[in-house]
Design a protein around this nucleic acid. Structure first.
Lengths: 314, 314
DNA sequence: GAATAATGTGGAACCGGTAACATATTTCAT
DNA sequence: ATGAAATATGTTACCGGTTCCACATTATTC
């Protein structure tokens, strides 16, 4: 028994004839090790959890794909948990998973307080959190990315640009909004009324845009805090018979594949989603395996991709 | 120890003062039971797996949401596995999860042979499989659904309707194609060339549609085997400057939320995705808990939803 | 060639629960 | 009052691995 364990884990001294015999026996008996028993004695399940706020947002799909890929390579299983933006559900997941000896979490949500997260006592990586000293974080350069978008709109002739921002209190939403403000706050047409609230989902954004267009029909540029809301804005334009990009130019944020499925295709500030996911997974595994991290707060570069909602396509 | 177990599982005789004391102790010591140890001795993990071929397809997102909801209600955890249409990955998942005492599978994929599935020796429910005698299945009435779509196109004046079918060998793709054929095979404009192959994804469908439109520019109706491909077709029309629905009408199949995000909104044969997911989960749990099933092959009704790609909206 | 080190293998405790069994106490019918 | 049944609780084996320890065997050193 002990010898078999040694063979399977390639640990300790085993004679190579014995190794051979063990493998033959495994073959003969169709033996497969029992992961649960292993987890119990090792106090580790070789499993990590990716916690996302909204599984229907393609951003998190792509993230999941990337995380999955890396973890699988290192022999870990990933489990995907969807919280629907509910802190209660999130706590429930964490609780349940800790009872299953989960090895670590990647938190793509931003609902739990930093304090609460600090107290978890499990290896953890956070996405889109502002600088944490205790927990590794990954995000794109939100403020800079927002500036890229707004600058492009200005250069391409927009004279009144609105912003659909993400939820109040969410760090990335604040940052992107700040980036917008950096460039437009001092322009004479600017008024805080040009900033409307969204919840990163399509529907609410559409409603907000509809409302503001009644008051400001001369808006000719829209910068949305994410792609889903940008698509919501595009929909509103199309329903109103306003031509995009001739009368209004739109830029989103994220770079999800969905942006290429609408027509005209969505211009966007593309985050390196896949890389962010892979990086998160690698860092988490490093942390789990107690290797030193060289850096705590990773800031990724964005790329402005101009497509049909800002440029005329042939 | 045994008494604590009895209290927590509400099983066997325990004096109620003792129950009280145990609860107090649990509170005091912040005790949480260890699920891994429990799994080991019970040979069950209270976990089921949902296996999907493509996590980026919103159809499977919605399905996952539904499954998750039901399983959670019954005290099970769901883990979502994305196979990317690879049978090897699927086998790998099944193997790994069986080693973790997974209680059951919901297979929304259709890549493994019936034979292979029969031999799994784990409770299992299959989606979109044709009648299995040994395994409960759930699907919508694909052939009938396809007929709904094609009939609507005919009634609304289409005189040459193409079909973008799903992958060869996939049961649902065959059925939907048959439904199309049922109505058009005997019409004088029909030719098998009007059926093109797609893989249920947007890109390949776009290319196929582009090609066929060069040969048959007089097509005025498109029935796609799923919504993603229908959106691909819509994109092609828009790029070619063909007006939808004036010159070409399009109907998809699935009823994913994405259909309402494009403009014009996509007409579709809507499957009751959420209900299908809930049903699958309920049946699986019944099977796991060894309750009798009243029915093996569930056929759900579809609803034709006409939106902007077939109707003029105000 | 004896002392020492390196290699190889089996026994047994342990991970943290569950459940069968044994034992002790109470309840109740006769 | 007595025995059977019901209630209550502690003891112990077990789930299937990992790992420490003891012991045996072989290789190396002086």
């Amino acid at each position: 028994m002990a010898t078999v364990s040694r063979v399977l884990n390639q640990k300790g001294y085993v004679h190579k004839d014995t190794v051979q015999k063990v493998h033959e026996a495994i073959e003969m008996l169709q033996y497969t090790p029992n992961d649960i028993a292993r987890s119990l004695s090792k106090k580790s399940s070789k499993t990590i959890a990716l916690i996302v706020p909204d599984i229907t947002n393609p951003f998190f799909n792509e993230l999941a794909l990337a995380v999955e890929k890396v973890t699988q390579m290192y022999g870990y299983t990933t489990i995907l948990c969807n919280t629907n933006d509910s802190p209660a559900v999130e706590r429930q997941y964490i609780q349940t998973l800790k009872q299953k000896y989960i090895d670590g979490f990647i938190m793509a949500t931003n609902t739990l307080s930093s304090n609460e997260i600090d107290q978890l006592q499990v290896p953890l990586v956070a996405l889109d959190r502002s600088n944490f000293q205790t927990v590794p974080t990954i995000s794109s350069k939100n403020r800079e990315g927002a500036r890229l978008a707004v600058q492009a709109l200005l250069q391409q002739g927009c004279t009144k640009i609105m912003h659909i921002r993400g939820p109040k209190g969410l760090w990335i939403a604040e940052e992107r909004c700040q980036g917008y403000l950096d460039l437009v706050e001092d322009l004479d047409w600017f008024t805080p009324k040009l900033i409307v609230n969204g919840n990163f989902q399509l529907k609410e954004a559409s409603e907000a845009v509809n409302k503001i267009f009644d008051a400001h029909p001369d808006i000719d540029g829209i910068f949305a805090g994410n792609d889903l809301m940008a698509i919501g804005a595009l929909r509103v334009m199309q329903k109103r018979g306003i031509c995009v990009p001739d009368q209004v130019q739109i830029i989103g944020y994220d770079g999800i594949p969905l942006g290429e499925m609408v027509y005209p295709e969505l211009s966007t500030v593309a985050q390196p989603i896949y890389e962010m996911g892979m990086l998160a997974a690698r860092i988490l595994i490093k942390k789990i395996e107690q290797q030193p991290l060289e850096e705590m707060n990773h800031q990724m570069d964005n790329e402005l991709i101009q497509r049909g909602t800002t440029l005329h396509t042939s």
